[in-house]
Design a protein around this nucleic acid. Structure first.
Lengths: 133, 133, 133, 133
DNA sequence: GTGGTCTAGACCACT
DNA sequence: GTGGTCTAGACCACA
């Protein structure tokens, strides 16, 4: 696994939330694939120099979201993600996120063409499920 | 002052951190200028429906960073030695938001062309400051 | 509040899950009402002779299910429960629970009329939302 | 032996506890009788798709309670001094399940008559042992 | 004072 | 050895 986590304990985001976010992003970018095993709670805790409980909390959160499957005594694995929401609900959530993004852009005083170009470029970094890798 | 704060109490970011961030961004955009007065703690607290202590914490944080100056009995002002965000810093923040957005899209199992088209459409509907309304 | 929690540390069910279950049942039976404040984490921990973290975990679980609302610095409150699932989904979940119940009855070698009567009687103990109290 | 075990790995109850409980219930129902042989650890593990150690733990637990006797090289047998569940104990277990069911119903915002009717209907569809099929 | 996060470290259930 | 639960106790964000 070429994926590496990194956390900062002085971040405004709690450590466990940083792990959650990075895992989600790793999966979305295709670096972590369906069925792949994540580092064990203890290993990741050692690597990040945090308490195992903190990693465990992140993993539990991810399992609740259906992103991970943990098999007791075996480890934690990326689950085959299937979203059960209706198209309308999914659109609503997505558009909300886009708006957040645009609000941030405006706050940062970024120009429209820059935003468009940067979004496009960032999207290229993502491996979409079902596409050639 | 055309600048408006907006906070969500269920955000993963604490309210005080949202205020800090938005103030920084206001300065970065040039909407908040050196020497300009910020709303009083009480006014902003009333406007955002949060506890005055929360606003006070945010202002203290900003003062510690040298971004604000508090003059007894007069109020809080944007400091002369304003630390504007560099283009690189602004890009980093924005790309982070875009990634959040795309991560969500992948987990929602949305197709690439749909994401591109929906982003474009949402951006078109979005009023950009300084453009004709 | 006349509601009392009780946990057994030697139960097959984890302590935090016992708290979750009892809270859900308290709400369902109408003993805990919408908007009512639950005991604070520390109070309940002291009362049950368990660690505050254990109670906190239970409350967080309940909040995630939308059953509780916690207001930072203020406490935890029973939220106005509104179920967003479709009728078909709700029926499916409920029928699943009924089947569990009947399977248990068969395992316990209970007769059909007894099961019917006991179910009816237990239902009478529940205050249904929207009914006179 | 007409007795069948069934476990769910995502139950809140550990798998080994499910086996323990079902064995006790089988005895309570009289389906498992004194002196009768239980499936071997390996057979049951294969049937339930669980780890043999898990079954072994359950059997050990049952042996410690004096419910089972293990005879070296021969297998596990229901002990002579069987501890049958009393009617009161069986009622308590069943009512617990009914409560779970009703708690869920209230949280799903189902109406009282609907719950009654749906329970009745599900029970009718349910094959009861000893009745004509 | 209230809930949220984190650490250190123990023990349990399970593979 | 892997994840799950729990304790004791600290510090932070918030009202």
């Amino acid at each position: 696994m070429t994926f590496r986590f990194s956390v900062r304990s002085n971040s405004e985001l709690p450590i466990f939330a940083q792990i959650v976010r990075q895992t989600k992003e790793g999966i979305a970018r295709g670096v972590l694939r369906s069925g792949e095993q994540l580092p064990t709670v203890r290993d990741l805790a050692r690597e990040l120099l945090v308490n195992p409980n903190t990693v465990a909390k992140a993993y539990q959160e991810l399992e609740r979201s259906g992103i991970l499957e943990t098999r007791r005594g075996a480890g934690s694995f990326v689950s085959g993600t299937t979203c059960t929401l209706s198209p309308a609900e999914r659109e609503k959530i997505f558009v909300g996120k886009v708006r957040d993004c645009l609000t941030e852009a405006v706050h940062l005083d970024l120009a429209r063409p820059y935003v468009r170009e940067r979004f496009e470029r960032t999207m290229k970094e993502y491996r979409w499920p079902g596409e050639e890798s």
